[in-house]
């Protein structure tokens, strides 16, 4: 028994903030941002909340899966930008979509949050405790940005992605997960402190960590499942930065074409980036049944992890 993704959904705020818009707010330029990050625009929540985006993404995923909200037994929201410390975001989603019988919890692991949430939901399914789960990543990063800090505010965006995970006895679904943290490097990337909420990041340390740990995690995961990078149809990495993803691909000696990207349109949406990308690919029929895919997240904690699945 394992969890299999049977439907995906996403929700992006309507407001688009381009690099040119940002260059009117801080001393930056489209050229500076796009060459260093790959990002050209991002969505910013105006009226949308972390919970409302999560609920909209969840409803789209339910519809895509052909599943009713009342059938959902577990809702996990990965977020670091909850609207409230309590009640949690998952409970707000439950109320909004009408999943009255679902257990509700949030998971906080920043940009690795969706991987942790998927891992958790899959573990509950493997244990036979729940059969149908909603796994959501939703972030309102704009709420913890210092709009005067040009090195950070250009990087992030808002949005939500979701998937329905159902118990399945077949060959498809989540095959294996690898998840790690190094708390000793926690202060390299911080945000959301009660007295100082804005994101602080040491770019060099984050870059070094990401380009080393992501290939290591993916390599370990595929090797222990008897696969090689050639067997993997697509690597869906957290959409932090095009240069990090290019460096990871180079280190893995893998074709960059196998690394789909959408940070150009949405920026870094933290825990939401992987499920948004997954939903885009699913709706464009770019995920092939029976093929292997790897999802990989990395970020604050420091934390990193990967999921191997067969679609």
């Amino acid at each position: 028994m394992r969890g299999r993704i049977t439907g995906t959904g996403s929700c992006l705020p309507e407001k688009v903030l381009t690099n040119d818009d940002l260059s009117k707010m801080v001393d930056t330029s489209d050229e500076w941002i796009s060459t260093r990050t790959g990002i050209r625009s991002r969505r910013i929540a105006v009226g949308e909340t972390t919970a409302s985006m999560a609920a909209a993404a969840a409803e789209a995923a339910l519809e895509n899966a052909g599943c009713l909200a009342g059938e959902i037994e577990l809702i996990i929201v990965a977020t670091s930008t909850q609207d409230f410390s309590f009640p949690n975001c998952a409970s707000a989603v439950q109320a909004e979509i009408g999943a009255a019988s679902a257990a509700c919890m949030d998971i906080s692991l920043a940009c690795s949050g969706f991987i942790a949430a998927l891992h958790t939901a899959d573990a509950f399914i493997r244990a036979g405790i729940y059969r149908k789960a909603l796994v959501i990543g939703s972030e309102r990063m704009s709420s913890i940005l210092d709009w005067k800090d040009r090195s950070v505010c250009v990087l992030f965006g808002d949005g939500a992605g979701a998937c329905v995970l159902e118990a399945d006895c077949g060959d498809s679904g989540i095959l294996d997960t690898d998840l790690h943290s190094d708390g000793s490097k926690g202060m390299v990337l911080t945000g959301g402190a009660r007295d100082m909420p804005n994101i602080k990041m040491n770019g060099q340390e984050v870059f070094k960590f990401a380009v080393r740990k992501v290939p290591e995690s993916i390599g370990c995961l595929i090797e222990r499942n008897g696969l090689t990078a050639n067997d993997i149809e697509g690597f869906l990495l957290h959409q932090a930065n095009v240069r990090i993803i290019e460096s990871v691909a180079r280190r893995m000696q893998a074709d960059i074409c196998k690394f789909p990207m959408n940070m150009m349109s949405y920026g870094n949406t933290s825990a939401a980036s992987i499920p948004i990308l997954l939903d885009e690919m699913n709706r464009k029929n770019k995920l092939s049944a029976g093929k292997f895919y790897v999802l990989s997240g990395f970020g604050a904690g420091l934390s990193w992890g990967s999921v191997l699945l067969r679609w």
């Binding site: 060459t35 260093r36 040491n202 770019g203 060099q204 340390e205 870059f207 070094k208 380009v211 080393r212 930065n241 240069r243 460096s247």
Partner: peptide
């Protein structure tokens, strides 16, 4: 060379020469 190229070079230097180059 931009800042991310320098990060890339730092990673390569650290691995080649077994040193740590703090930010």
């Amino acid at each position: 060379v931009d800042s991310l190229d320098m990060f890339e070079l730092v990673v390569a230097l650290e691995e080649e020469y077994s040193v740590e180059i703090p930010p």
